[in-house]
Design a protein around this nucleic acid. Structure first.
Lengths: 344, 344
DNA sequence: CTGTTAGCGCCTTCAA
DNA sequence: TTGAAGGCGCTAACAG
């Protein structure tokens, strides 16, 4: 690899002059600038960003950690983050924790040793506190995405999970549903708790009682709680609708329902958080609370870069993005059969 | 940030000894090793990978460049690449060219300045030759994914586009279709040319003539060729089926068809390459040639790492992965109306 | 406008 | 088993 010294020798200048040409700093005569540039081209020079980072003490690299790279919510978010990072001249190092604390920890170690300038961090859950504290210890600025972590004060971009949940469940109640199950994410994830709160709120507003036996905790990545679902369906008064806490849970639940011979929405209505990406636009089916995924990424990135660039310490900022109810065909009024079942 | 010197001072040893402890090299007495380790913990030491890379002349980082981060084909591929990279102790720097040569070039500049050890490269198309040659000039090993680039000899992992296309079109012909349109990717992308070849082959095998006016060239990212589509539909003998060269084109085409009042498959059948991710599994609709996206990533990564690790120069390797015909409900026999239209 | 010196954090080489 | 010197490629600070 050619270095500034190689260029310097061939152009009959000092390395420092080459460095100045590369970075457009200081004053340089047009003549030498041209000469140096020409040699750089000839020798195909590319600056070594490692060496530069070492002396500048900054890398111009940022990290984005998401919890599921196959989920359209996060890929859309990633694109928002990437577009914004690029606009500010930052490179982006992606990482994927798979909702797994161990992988998340590995990733944080990597971040630390790479000395990135900042991190966009979608935490796996409450136990992400420790890796986040590590980032803090090492003075690496970060912004939380999508999920809060109790005990951690930081900039963050969240969705309004409670209100979104309230809308979804409110919609089901308006349709006439009275027995609504909740298939939630893990309870150590803030969005799961808030969606639960919204679920309760909707019941309260409608003056309906809540039956705790209608709530199942699962995992945002996929649905494996078949036996719990069977339990729900065998209840004396089974649910006529299901609120799945995210898109992938909804898919899993619907597949499980169909295996058991239930139709959606004829036998049960299903709603969930988050869209499904371009594929869904073909045959829009699920009634969802749609979140502005791209904005999560681009706004989060802006907060992060602002914090990195600001000399003084900014106050902590917390953005909450609303979601939007999109009524499609996975919801309907409960059928007489269902209502009868519910009357048991 | 604490350095090996900070540790050294506190542990009463030289920096060199600390370095040896960190890397588990050389012989060190158990006593000092323990002492040093303890101080490292206390001070929360994390090695600076920039500094290390600078002297070792390798970064243990690889790059993955894909052309569309929102396309499930590529996110699945990315996960395969990531899993394998991690298994071998490499970090992965993602990049997204959006099928855009300019962005791709920027990305290659970034790769060069970051001095990554190797690149998994899904080229935007034939004009990617130049950035690839740059990588070659700088002796950075790479593996091509999904697409060939004429004039570039390299390791690669491809899908069998021709045979996949032949299967899809063969399926349409078996159903009775005789007028089959092809909405292809851009002609400077190798897969588009091969899918075109498979389309021709299927016709030839069935003894059917090919009508060039039934072929439209578009862009893999999305479908904007509405007027060209209108042209097809107004033909005296319009197509009764459409082969879209990838998943996103199929989505665009079907939406355009529906806007015009056509139903799929009643009025026109549609087939395409690639699946749609988990969302599609709910209401499987499109008949596709499904590619093993994860394998593209994981096998490509293996080839890359093998090449990086091998002292001698390996022969060039080219893997071609088969695709699988998945018949779903976007295809049906042509209706009498259509056949009548075709009889004009 | 240009050059010299020193050092970012680490590891290789050689010496003790 | 341990340490000292030097250098990876670059730039800040100072000098001319």
């Amino acid at each position: 690899m050619t270095t500034i010294y190689d260029i310097a020798k061939k152009a009959n200048v000092s390395a420092m002059t080459v460095s100045r040409v590369v970075n457009n700093t200081g004053r340089i005569s047009e003549a030498t600038r041209k000469r140096v540039k020409k040699v750089m081209e000839e020798m195909n020079y590319v600056p070594n960003s490692m060496a530069r980072s070492l002396v500048l003490q900054k890398t111009k690299m940022l990290s984005l950690l998401i919890t599921d790279i196959t989920n359209p919510f996060f890929t859309t978010l990633a694109r928002g983050a990437e577009d914004t990072a690029k606009r500010y001249g930052y490179k982006l190092l992606f990482g994927n924790s798979d909702e797994d604390y161990a992988k998340e920890k590995d990733y944080v170690d990597m971040i630390l040793s790479t000395r990135v300038d900042g991190v966009l961090f979608a935490p796996a859950g409450d136990r992400s506190l420790e890796p986040l504290q590590q980032l803090q210890n090492h003075q690496i600025p970060f912004v939380l995405l999508d999920r809060e972590v109790p005990g951690m004060e930081a900039d963050m971009v969240l969705g309004d999970s409670k209100e979104g949940a309230r809308m979804l469940v409110g919609h089901l109640i308006e349709l006439g549903h009275r027995r609504i199950a909740l298939i939630n994410g893990a309870p150590d994830v803030s969005t799961a708790r808030l969606r639960s709160a919204g679920y309760l709120e909707a019941h309260k507003l409608a003056g309906l009682p809540v039956d705790e036996s209608l709530v199942i905790y699962a995992n945002y990545r996929d649905f494996h709680e078949d036996s719990a679902l069977d339990g729900l369906l065998r209840l004396p008064s089974p649910p006529t609708a299901i609120f799945a806490a995210n898109n992938f849970l909804a898919i899993g639940v619907i597949q499980a329902l169909r295996q058991r011979g239930y139709r959606v929405p004829e036998d049960l209505s299903v709603v969930c958080f988050d869209d499904f990406g371009p594929a869904e636009s073909l045959n829009p089916f699920l009634t969802v609370a749609s979140q502005q995924a791209y904005q999560f990424g681009s706004l989060g990135m802006q907060l992060l870069i602002e914090r990195i660039d600001s000399e003084s310490d900014l106050p902590r900022r917390k953005l909450v993005l609303p979601s939007e109810l999109r009524i499609r065909s996975s919801t309907a009024a409960p059928t007489s059969i269902n209502t009868k079942a519910a009357d048991h």
